[in-house]
Amino acid sequence: MRAVCSLSLVLMILVILPTVNLAFGAEVGEYLDRRVEIWNLFFRMMVVAFTIGAVVSGTMIWLVIRFRESNPKATPTKYEGTGELDRYE
């Protein structure tokens, strides 16, 4: 599910942002303004980074809250007491 969400986010970023860019990225003058090009790239990268950051940190926060020992829903894992903690798959 998480993967599907992130995949659709990626597609959104890939499709929508360039369109917005075309619509609003007006010509600055005869010559290219490197500030515009580079900062736009930077903000696109930031959109990607913060989206992924939200997904990953959200997952981490959820994991920490849900699977902490003191969570009322916490149940012993099936490996507890079996001595199989170090049994790698």
């Binding site: 992130s6 990626v10 990268m45 990607v48 992924i52």
Partner: peptide
């Protein structure tokens, strides 16, 4: 997903 994102980042950066 990670690789797709990296390709996107790389292509954009290359183009700019």
């Amino acid at each position: 997903v990670v690789v797709a994102l990296l390709v996107y980042v790389g292509a954009e950066a290359w183009n700019i």
